[in-house]
Design a binder for these strands. Structure first.
Length: 200
DNA sequence: GTACAGATTGAG
DNA sequence: TCAATCTGTACT
């Protein structure tokens, strides 16, 4: 099965659809001669401007979140708690502040190289939005990066199909401030039984 | 200029 | 359960 870089069309859907479609796809991060490849196993959807948990709630635009408004297929990355980067993929058309937070990936080529047999050890690398950015060496310079054009990061379809019965829906994490209505939305998606999903 | 909250994490 | 840590944002 040939690896196929995702094209613009893939991203031009609403955030919830994109969050589900991204499960089982592969993020490829090229750094010098090395490649970090991670299978996406957990995502969350943020649907501004109506979503109170979204940074673009109420149509707010600031220097920080303007990348969120870009056409689908761009990166919106920002620093949280002064320490951790959060990687988001924008969804939908230009001007629609919808995005998908990548919460966890399964490292593909890292394990064989370092011969790490212990899944628990490997798991510590990427089982959380802050950690996976650390692993892939992502930072502010990737903000507004175009995933369909970039030479250093993109997403591939490797022919893997995730059945809908394998997709688990859950409440989003860390957004208590948004109130019960938005907090209880089942907009977090992950692959059932995958050990790299964040939390326990 | 100051104040303060936050889409997290890991140690206890 | 709780604190580290610092940028963006909204104030004065």
């Amino acid at each position: 099965m040939a690896n196929k870089k995702l094209s613009r069309k893939f991203y031009l859907v609403d955030g919830i659809t994109l969050a589900k479609k991204l499960l089982g796809k592969y993020i490829v991060r090229k750094l010098d001669s090395r490649k970090f490849i991670g299978k996406i196993v957990e995502t969350e959807a943020y649907i501004g401007p109506k979503d109170k948990a979204s940074h673009s709630f109420g149509g707010k635009i600031t220097p920080r979140n303007q990348a969120e408004y870009l056409e689908g297929g761009h990166i919106y990355i920002y620093l949280c708690y002064g320490m951790y980067w959060q990687l988001n993929i924008t969804a939908n058309k230009n001007g629609k502040p919808e995005c998908v937070l990548i919460r966890a990936v399964e490292p593909i080529n890292y394990s064989s190289k370092l011969k790490i047999k212990n899944v628990k050890l490997l798991r510590k690398l990427t089982s959380g939005p802050g950690k996976l950015c650390q692993w892939m060496k992502l930072n502010k310079s990737f903000n507004t990066e175009d995933l369909t054009k970039s030479k250093r990061i993109w997403i591939e379809d490797r022919g893997e199909k995730i059945k809908s019965s394998q997709i688990v829906k859950a409440k989003r994490i860390g957004i208590d401030y948004a109130g019960n209505f938005w907090k209880n939305k089942l907009w977090r998606f992950y692959i059932k039984d995958n050990p790299f999903v964040s939390k326990k």
